[in-house]
Design a protein around this nucleic acid. Structure first.
Lengths: 252, 252
DNA sequence: CCCGTTGTTGCACGTTTCTGCATGTACGGT
DNA sequence: ACCGTACATGCAGAAACGTGCAACAACGGG
């Protein structure tokens, strides 16, 4: 066993398990714990691992901003998010819009689900850092502070280079006649661009959005596969949407 | 179960459930309540949790932010970050690399300084959301979990479309002969691409990086305008770097 | 081919750190 | 005011750590 080979092995273990225990590795490879410790020390000096008592951890945890973990979504949004997360298939690719509901979806994804998440929200990207299974693709562009997502021409252009099975879209208004609407024209354009890159588009609509309309149209109903909501399935508006041929998934 | 791993687990529980009960965690992990209490005490000392009778609660986001300024960025990095933030001119554009030191720079920017920040780190983008003056441009791409930044081909390509007055680069090794180095080849390429888009490049190098070298070269000294460090200005390595014609800014 | 140099590996040692238990104290609910 | 629970502190055993040392292999020059 070459020294360099050992170091690669350690990095591999770290990537796979998220940790390395000096004692276990030494027993596995049949070498002394001292050698493992020496390797870990060297790797730590190069900034490739974070040395801790008993072994080593990946370097990322220190980078994660705990502040973004704080906000807790209300029950309704969490229920919607949970249903939406269930639509994501292992090995599949999902486009996640910005907004608090989409953030809740990201958090609701099983940590080990192997899937690709495409998003224009840096907040969601950060939230997914500790999901070992998720591959994150971030769409860049100018970041607008009030919605905390990247949009504008650069972001729309970046979106042209991806495609996915599923797009989960947050909107501010869901109305039988007006369709899906939002309060900002640029935002609407971005959501349209995202939706166009996915085979299916589901809308995340917690109950307070149902029956309301904002100024800018995102999509007409023909382009929507389904709506995920926590509203009463017998609600008049919900029934109307269903009659338009749109699937309605109701959550708890 | 490593001690550091346990602490991460506690922070994770806190983020997910909004609280931690010492007794339950001890039973769950099969360890003594004393260990849990000790961990919580340490985390509380760092300001990451709020200790209460029976367990712990999250601290308010504002306090977390303050705490992470204090603890995640040790004095040295904070001093470096403060000097670096002083190089950013009102109305100017700065390219901010990823890493904890660069994150500290973002936080050290005066909130009302009108400037454009270009970054490939979603963490930094999120941190800048509450800086009213900063315009944020995010470079997209595949997000690598261990360093929490976007790089790869897409990110390098995105970087080609921007330009800035100043680039602040974090590295893991600063060595008179080896130049600036880091532990990952893709990361090195990304840093090179960023540096190429700015008129001037300064390197953020807290003292423990000085005199060390990693596997992959980022830039030779000719392409570096200056180094910002908290190391002793009379240090032998620092003097050597100065003799290479590189400006050395020492902090605190 | 030989020998000195260099770098690596495992072992032994003393030191530091962690963990669980015991004790006595402080807190909170009833 | 009482009693059970959580707490801080001290202690001892265990585990992990760093360092120095010796054995060993790889390499290059003579």
């Amino acid at each position: 066993m070459l020294a360099a080979e050992r170091r690669d092995h350690l990095l591999g273990l770290l990537a796979r398990d998220g940790k390395v225990v000096a004692k276990d590795v030494a027993a596995d490879l049949g070498i002394s714990e001292d050698s493992v410790r020496r390797d870990l020390r060297d790797l730590a000096a190069e900034g490739l691992v974070q040395r801790v008592y008993g072994g080593a951890l990946p370097v990322s945890p220190a980078v994660v901003d705990y502040a973004t973990r704080q906000s807790v979504a209300p029950d309704g949004k969490r229920a919607v998010a949970s249903v939406a997360a269930g639509l994501v298939r292992p090995g599949g690719a999902v486009i996640l819009d910005g907004g608090t509901t989409a953030l809740a979806v990201a958090r609701a994804l099983p940590p080990d689900l192997g899937c690709t998440v495409i998003t224009h929200s840096p907040t969601i990207a950060v939230a997914l850092l500790d999901h070992p299974g998720a591959e994150i693709f971030l769409l860049g562009g100018r970041v607008f502070k009030h919605s905390a997502v990247a949009y504008g021409a650069a972001a729309v252009e970046a979106a042209q280079n991806v495609s996915a099975d599923l797009c989960l879209l947050g909107v501010t208004g869901v109305h039988p006649e007006a369709g899906l609407t939002t309060g900002d024209a640029e935002e609407a354009a971005m959501k349209r661009a995202l939706s166009a890159r996915a085979a299916e588009t589901y809308v995340l609509a917690s109950s307070e959005k149902i029956g309301t309309a904002s100024r800018f149209r995102v999509l007409p109903w023909e382009r929507v596969t389904g709506v995920i909501t926590d509203a009463d399935p017998h609600d008049a508006v919900v029934r109307q949407v269903q009659e338009l041929g749109v699937e309605v998934l109701t959550a708890g």
